[in-house]
């Protein structure tokens, strides 16, 4: 694999584009604790980028930096070729970055359909007066967005639970609905925080299929955190490995697998 500024071709022959998001020397501290120490990596257009590492390595903190929950003390976040100022999470969402959470963050009081429709909120612009009249543009906009949402509901095979309140769904389906909500925003970058945590093998297979399909059909760039090594190695094009807030490896799954630092971090190393 040869990386250029224009991109590279993956092992399975997919063409990966230029840099979509670049983290430059990110350092994040909570008081005396340094959660992330001077980490740099990039995410390229159209690729599936995994962030892995043992517990407490700072993976979720990294995702929270990208989605605007945390603001790093040092370092820069570049998105679409320009430096991103310190942003609130809702501004990040409006830029086209969507995410899912490790422990599901759905709106329990709403139906599946309404949950997925909330993903379209950044695309809905009618003002309150038009909404209140439910007339002309407001209704048109609702129908247009509903069509897009229905495509995603179709795609993720959750048609049958469309009108079910989310609180009644089992865990695996909730994870899928959360993915649907993130997809509904038609994001440029999709962040998945442990999309397969707590799933059985079949559910993991389903989820992996959906992630690959999303990347394939919509061309969505995906950054994911996952603990299941088999899944990570199969899905991702490039992997960042973190340990104790530091980057210890970066490259294709094969490169990472053979990296001595990575092996040490996962299997432990004899201290003398």
């Amino acid at each position: 694999m040869t990386e250029t500024s224009e991109g590279y071709t993956t092992a399975d022959g997919r063409q990966i584009g230029g840099v979509l998001m670049e983290m430059k020397n990110i350092t994040l501290r909570f008081g005396g604790v340094t959660a992330i120490k001077d980490i740099s990596f990039d995410i390229r257009e159209g690729e599936i980028r995994a962030i892995i590492g043992p517990n407490g390595a700072g993976k979720s903190s990294m995702l929270n930096v990208i989605s605007g929950f945390y603001h790093p003390q040092e370092g820069e976040v570049w998105f679409h070729g320009s430096k991103r100022p310190a942003m609130k999470p809702y501004q990040v969402a409006q830029q086209g970055i969507a995410r899912t959470f490790q422990n599901i963050a759905l709106f329990e009081g709403m139906s599946v359909l309404n949950n997925v429709m909330t993903g379209r909120l950044t695309h809905m612009t009618t003002n309150m007066a038009q909404q209140a009249m439910w007339w002309g543009k407001a209704e048109r906009e609702e129908v247009e967005n509903r069509e897009i949402v229905e495509k995603i509901i179709d795609f993720l095979e959750i048609q049958h639970i469309r009108k079910t309140p989310v609180s009644r769904l089992p865990y695996g389906l909730k994870k899928r609905v959360e993915l649907a909500r993130a997809l509904a925003a038609e994001p440029k970058l999709l962040l998945l925080d442990e999309p397969m945590a707590g799933m059985n093998v079949e559910e993991k297979e389903d989820m992996s299929r959906f992630i690959l399909d999303v990347n394939d059909e919509f061309g969505t760039t995906i950054a994911l955190i996952e603990h299941d090594m088999g899944v990570v190695m199969d899905l991702s094009d490039r992997v960042v490995v973190m340990d104790y807030g530091k980057k210890i490896g970066d490259g294709t799954p094969d490169e990472v697998r053979n990296n001595q630092d990575v092996i040490d971090a996962y299997l432990g190393v004899a201290h003398d």
């Binding site: 989605s67 609130k88 999470p89 809702y90 969402a93 409006q94 969507a98 995410r99 959470f101 963050a105 759905l106 709106f107 329990e108 009081g109 709403m110 309404n114 909330t118 993903g119 909120l121 950044t122 909500r181 993130a182 925003a185």
Partner: peptide, 15 residues
């Protein structure tokens, strides 16, 4: 309703 059910998630989807 998004704000009511989970304000953090509401913010992350752009509310």
């Amino acid at each position: 309703m998004a704000i009511r059910d989970m304000d953090i998630a509401a913010e992350i989807i752009g509310v």
